[in-house]
Design a binder for these strands. Structure first.
Lengths: 360, 360
DNA sequence: ATCAAAAATGTAAACCTTTGCATTTTTATT
DNA sequence: AATAAAAATGCAAAGGTTTACATTTTTGAT
């Protein structure tokens, strides 16, 4: 039936049918097929049906790369995170990805392990793939990366913080405020001897903001944090557990405020191992409300950071930016966080002040 | 300085410089610049330096899409997972991604939430992006997806299982064996009344294999699993905790074998809440050895599934397949799993047989 | 039926790089 | 120094789609 047309592509892309094959089979020109795929409504119904049939029969799959060649959008969006392998970000990633899929875009994700130089190389690599837009987690970025994006006018959003890089719209929560609030909760419970477990804040602006929040709350309450109460701890349950056990054995505070929930989980398990009761003997709070924080025993008092909403909003805002190319108004979006009081915190009973209240 | 060459591209890709701009500035032809980027060693040193300088000054970023048009590789590889937001897969993903990055490829990831139809649509979307290769998690896939990949001869690997789809090389662990082994451990400890907590096995072949493993081990030991001991439980800590509490309150078994570590964590916390001691009163095992399983209290006895190694191996094997296009020998790779005995299991003291041993 | 306007379709150039082949330059050999 | 062989470079076509512009078909009003 199909005549051995000599003009057929020799062996392109492993012989996969192209737009022209579909066109020939449907008895229309390539242009029409192209139009059918890009805006079906501008081709007449009968034609449309013929094209659809031909495409289906041939198993045609469009080649977006050839399209992107024309300055057309590639339909891919980049997401750059510090790490994938972490409950912190996986919710965010999934929400972002799903929202993108809903709008027929594909996500390219890459992680740089908190290495800002590697982030630059990732951004370059994404740009080579002609991403339509990009989302960067955090506020700290190398100038080179931001510059490349600016020069090419690639729509960009920064995630996870509420105040961002100037010129880049930011979607996230106020890390400072979250930390402030959860610390205030501890202060309200009369805790005065509070230990901090935070990761290195050098190239991690989220952790930095949070720590500042804790410090400010403490300061406002007239509490001075003794030097040795500022422990450094990675985002890792095992090390947090170990560290907490050391601290609890030698010189237990009445409360811990942790850089995130993973650290808090570690502290809780350390306490359990030592037979120290939470919250009776010591209170623990985290930040993040990760999956599992509600189910752990005791359920963790923490700050709910709406990762899914951030991911979803970010995708939406980015897509909106793509559609109207006037990347004009850069407005930051702050998504509120809430302290969730569960069972890992209690009134400090060892404090003199508290004792007075109890005895009074 | 730069003459207003009328031949310049009108406004391509937002005025970003192309290979020809670099060529002009370096005083060579476009072909040479192209060669410089693809195999630097075939252009002479002085030329090379001029090109590099020009590219740097112009801030040139190559356009891999235009390159891919020539049947050349796009440099992107797809990874399709059931879900990202889950400790099960995030290690795998990260390892896969990192290995790819090492070989200068980019990963496109997508999740289908255990919906095989959506997987088909994802595969199509990836194909539109001209991925060079693809990794699919699991053994259950819609024919349409496999067929599309086969027609286009896209190198494919299946992950996570050890026995796979015919014709697709598979890299993973033996889920059956893992489950068998961990169950055997429980049997060795004289447990006879064992409860199963597994998710719906309908479109989840991993869970199905594991369950079969448990059942076989039980059967081999001459233990018949009473109907009501086969509980269905999602991969979610909170529901596992709730379910475990219900079970423990009404009719406690002496041991739980859980579909994965997340479920096991839930069981442990449920037991803690009820004041039931692990392992003294009840033993618990998981499968997976997720991040945190060693740090939890009590540390979880489980099976270590080398997710990172699977991810890394998969990426390597895929890349190797890309390089030599003869997708000839399809060999499955089984990466061994190991039972890790920690502190959540103990000899069953309530069993008559055990009592005899103790009293004997 | 007729004609103008609107809608649908076709033609061909353009998008940016890669690559086969031709040409020039370099290197090695005598 | 001359020559052949090898290496480096240039020229131009190709790769699959989009799109401005030209052309044809349809629609709606008379």
């Amino acid at each position: 039936m199909n005549s051995p047309d000599p003009k057929r592509r020799s062996r392109s892309r492993k012989g996969a049918p192209g737009i022209l094959d579909v066109a020939a089979r449907a008895g229309v020109s390539g242009a029409t097929v192209s139009r059918y795929f890009n805006s079906p409504d501008i081709v007449r119904l009968p034609t449309r049906e013929r094209i659809e049939k031909a495409a289906r029969e041939l198993g045609y799959i469009r080649d977006r790369m050839a399209g992107a060649l024309h300055g057309k959008m590639s339909g891919t969006v980049g997401l750059v995170v510090p790490t994938i392998d972490n409950a912190i970000f996986s919710e965010l990633i999934e929400a972002f990805s799903n929202e993108l899929h809903l709008h027929d875009r594909t996500m390219i994700i890459a992680s740089h392990n908190y290495d800002l130089m590697r982030e630059v190389s990732i951004v370059r690599s994404l740009l080579e793939r002609r991403i339509d837009g990009i989302a960067l987690v955090g506020r700290d970025h190398d100038i080179a990366a931001v510059e490349m994006l600016k020069v090419r006018a690639v729509p960009t959003v920064a995630l996870w913080n509420s105040t961002g890089v100037p010129g880049i719209p930011t979607i996230g929560t106020d890390n400072f405020q979250s930390a402030f609030d959860i610390t205030q909760h501890l202060i309200d419970l009369k805790h005065r001897d509070i230990a901090l477990l935070f990761p290195d804040t050098h190239s991690n602006d989220r952790a930095r903001d949070r720590k500042r929040g804790v410090l400010n709350a403490l300061n406002d309450a007239g509490i001075t944090l003794s030097e040795h109460r500022d422990y450094q701890c990675e985002y890792d349950m095992a090390s947090a557990k170990q560290l907490a056990m050391d601290v609890l054995r030698i010189d237990a505070p009445t409360a811990f405020v942790c850089g995130n929930d993973v650290i808090a989980h570690g502290v809780i398990h350390g306490a359990i191992r030592l037979g120290i009761r939470i919250p009776e003997d010591v209170s623990v709070v985290g930040i993040g409300d990760f999956r599992g924080s509600a189910a752990i025993e005791p359920p963790l008092t923490t700050v709910r950071l709406p990762a899914r909403r951030i991911g979803q909003s970010a995708a939406r805002i980015l897509i909106e930016q793509l559609q109207r190319s006037d990347a004009s108004q850069v407005c930051d979006t702050t998504i509120p966080s809430h302290v969730i009081v569960r069972e890992s915190t209690a009134l400090n009973t060892s404090c003199a002040e508290t004792r007075n209240i109890r005895e009074g």
